Computed example of a mutant assay.
Amino acid sequence: MKNKIVLIGMPGCGKTTIGKMLSKELNLKFFDMDDYIEKISSQTVTQLFEDGEENFRNFETLACKELAEMKNALISSGGGIIKRIENIEVLKKESWIIFIDRPIQNILEDVDISGRPLLKDGKERLIKLYEERYDLYKKVADEIIKNDDEIREAINQIKTFIKFNILK
C-alpha cells in the first residue's frame, strides 16, 4: 500500500512550501530532498554540482532509495528527479507522485535563482528546463495539481486527491 506522497515539479513551483504545510495538516514526516542530499553527502547542493551534475544526480538517486524506505512521509523532490527513471520507479512503489504544475510565467516572476545551481545562467535556462521536463512530469505523475492561484487551493486539491485515493 502506498504510504508516501512525493511532490515533483519545476524549481519554484511550490513543492517545499506546499509540502511543509500539507505534511503538518496530514501529520506526515516532511523531507525536502535537497536538504536530505546535503545531509547524506555532507556538502551543499552547490558544492555537489561543482563536481558535475552527474555527481549530484548520484546522491539524488541514493536519497530516493533511502527516502523510499520511510513510512508516512511527504517528500518534496528536486526539480530534476525525473531525469533518471530509476528514481521514479523506486519512489512509485510506495508513493503517490503529485506534479505541482505552476505556469512558467509565475515561476519566472518570483523564483530566486541565486541558490539554484542549474539556474545560475539565468532565467532563460529555467525556460529551457521547463520545456525539457514538463512532459516528463506529466507522464510520471499520479495526479497533476495546478498551482496558479492561491497556495491554499493547491493544498486543498491534494487533500481531495488523498481523500479519494489514499484514505479509501
Rank of each mutant, 00 (worst) to 15 (best):
R116D: 10
S42M: 11
K159R: 05
L136I: 15
I162H: 00
G80D: 11
S114H: 03
E150V: 15
I82P: 04
F161K: 09
N147L: 03
N72C: 08
D32R: 01
F99H: 10
I100H: 02
I8R: 08
V111N: 02
L48C: 04
A63C: 14
T61I: 07
Q47L: 13
T160L: 05
A73D: 06
K39C: 13
G80P: 10
F30C: 03
K120P: 00
L28Q: 11
V111Y: 00
I107V: 11
E54P: 12
A68F: 05
A154R: 08
A73K: 01
L67D: 07
L62Q: 09
I40E: 09
D121G: 07
L129D: 00
T17F: 03
F99I: 10
I113W: 06
V111I: 12
N156M: 10
K39L: 14
T160Q: 04
E94I: 03
I104T: 01
D32Q: 11
K24M: 08
E89S: 10
N147I: 03
I104Q: 01
M1I: 12
D135L: 14
I144T: 12
I104C: 00
I127C: 06
I18L: 05
K4T: 12
L91N: 07
K4G: 07
A154D: 06
F161T: 08
R125H: 01
N87D: 02
S77E: 09
T44E: 03
E54N: 15
M70H: 14
E60F: 14
K128Y: 09
I145Y: 07
I8D: 07
W96E: 09
E132C: 08
F49E: 14
Q43L: 12
N27I: 04
T46W: 06
L129E: 02
S23H: 09
T17L: 06
K65H: 13
G80L: 03
R102H: 01
L129H: 02
M1S: 15
D110T: 11
L129T: 09
F99M: 02
G78E: 05
M1W: 15
D148M: 12
L22F: 13
K15H: 04
I5H: 15
L108W: 00
L126N: 00
Y134T: 13
E143A: 13
D110R: 14
K120Y: 01
G115Q: 11
R84Q: 10
V6C: 12
N3V: 15
I155M: 06
I88H: 05
T160H: 02
I98R: 10
I145W: 01
L67F: 14
A141C: 11
E53R: 15
E38C: 09
L7R: 05
L7H: 02
L91Q: 02
S77I: 01
F99A: 04
E150D: 12
